[in-house]
Design a protein around this nucleic acid. Structure first.
Lengths: 196, 196, 196, 196
DNA sequence: CATGAATGAGTGTTCATTCAT
DNA sequence: AATGAATGAACACTCATTCAT
């Protein structure tokens, strides 16, 4: 056990240290506002090292996008209560997403700021589509079983995801305090919009 | 009548030509991703000309933000049916916003991408707050009259605005076709989320 | 007598208004540090007007150089006491130069800052040489008559002019207060350096 | 011994190559008349490299000013004959300054052109004051011991420094040939202006 | 493997000059 | 004659990327 704690910056691999540093900087300053040497410094590596692990700045942002997208997906689906009733599942989903946004705000913000950038490559876009497709399938199941109202499959994603993203933005602004009460109301409003 | 049509690029004033060009570029590439000489070229003016009309790139983005914010606000409120019942008013509001997003997609995208940029000045932020405050007051009225459910004032903005923004995004990347049916469902879903 | 007071800015010709404005700006900010539109604004004329009267910025600085060089020369020689004894003549010369530097500091500073610029043309350099030649002839007369010591003709110019320029610079700095006592000492020191 | 001769351009460090190139250009064309890319080209480095070593153009001119000021001061004071009589000391001083101006004309001109620029920072101004104060103290000693006449402390600096600067200028534009005879006369004239 | 000094194309901005009015 | 809006080359400076060590 040579590196005792692989979750610290020191123990993490160089590639992960670079991704971690890039996450914080891209989330806060955006893609064009973040200089590569700054990422290197924040990661504690030389500027040239980034180019050993990534195909330039664009390669870095794409690998980071996929890492974060997979992480949040895994956070929600990793222990999804598939056997519980739909309303409970929705409660679980809503809670897990909000938990992610609150505990990993940089990840959430990064994904929101970058999911439409012209620098995303085909792999990243394919992953985005894959996740969407998974969600759509779940929605179809809800409709088939009569839980959700009879509406376009995309509608539910649009309402739920749009609401959550907007809510987090306003919270980060300072326009909104994310109390338990507010979260409960938001969840309920989303469910009202969905349910048959 | 030599200057017959001031709405064409040729007839528009240089300042407006610059603002129009900047709108498209900022909407697509973001603030930091858009070079000033590119704006100049797109506007058909010299690079130095921009600095006759605006106080630098930051001045340009702020004047543009306020022009577009005022335009969309005016589009929605200019002929608002204040004397009709709330559900009709909501229908009107939803329709007008969607109309704006479909006919002026660059304006809509620009406002969404830039409403929190650190380059916005106090005037722009004040305008943003003013519009939000106006919407909140409307929401408070809906609650007072028992039309809307008893929830945080911001919740309704979050759900409605988040849904609309998300819907437009999905429509622009081709994931979603904005049929009349879909729009009607989205409007209804939003109302369900709001109503008491 | 249509323009009552031709020495005011309003009464002066446009060309002179431009030269006056340029004098102050070039003296304070230097040639490269002064923008032509700034000169135009200070002169109360349009930017293009400068190009009707001068061949560009370089033409302007050269005409200005010659105007000022002639003005200071005239101030010293215009009423020179040719019939008085040499010591009195030197006293007069020293006093007139210092008077010019104190009452027309912009002119004095401008001439000092610009008499070696690579933008001076042949006419300006010829005028510079002409004035120097005039001074050298005076010096030769002083030597011939046994008033000045037997030394290189240029030595006296170097000592006297070098001392006066340095003195004025230090005075403008604030390093030096130009009291009557100091001026008398400086004049005496110069004379000591010259006299046989 | 691969880096045998560190005084050639090839052997000098990049920072020194930049300073050397800047010295020649600033001396000839002034601060505002010298473009940073021109300095880079003259130094044989990329434009960006200058910004690795200096905090912008202003940082460059200030570091250069201090390097040259220290160099000339050291040239004069490094082997100053403190134990010799004052007239010998003055001879030494005069000779060393002239030697510097003749062998390092760019340094001499640069210091003369830039010692009052508004771009000099506090460190540079402090160094300037320090050197002046040192010279004034020497002058005070000469007065106290009855060697120099009873006049304002600054007078001697003004006469001697003004004369030397003027002399070098005339020599550089070809108006004056700096023969040993001329230099001896100039030194003697300065001493006459000083001595009691 | 890893570095970071070096680069030069590109950035936002200024300004000497022109020219339609 | 006089203007000042318009220009585009040039400015000071940044940064994604390379490569000698």
């Amino acid at each position: 056990m040579p590196t005792a704690n692989p979750t610290t910056d020191e123990g993490a691999s160089k590639k992960e240290r670079i991704l971690d540093a890039a996450l914080g900087l891209f989330a806060e300053r955006g893609y064009h506002g973040t200089a590569v040497p700054l990422v290197a410094e924040a990661a504690g590596v030389g500027a040239g090292t980034i180019y050993r692990y990534f195909e330039g700045k664009q390669g870095l942002v794409n690998e980071l996008f996929r890492r974060e997208k997979r992480a949040v997906t895994n956070h929600v689906l990793g222990s999804f209560p598939f056997s519980e009733p739909p309303r409970s599942q929705f409660h679980y989903f809503f809670g897990r997403i909000v938990e992610w946004a609150r505990t990993q705000p940089q990840s959430f913000q990064f994904l929101e700021h970058h999911h439409h950038g012209p620098y995303l490559d085909e792999d990243s876009l394919a992953l985005e589509r894959e996740v969407t497709e998974y969600a759509l399938n779940y929605v179809r199941m809800l409709k088939t079983t009569g839980i959700a109202r009879d509406a376009d499959d995309h509608l539910f994603l649009v309402v739920v995801w749009g609401t959550i993203v907007r809510m987090m933005r306003e919270a980060w602004n300072g326009s909104l305090e994310l109390t338990d009460a507010f979260l409960a109301q938001a969840e309920e409003a989303c469910w009202e919009a969905i349910k048959a």
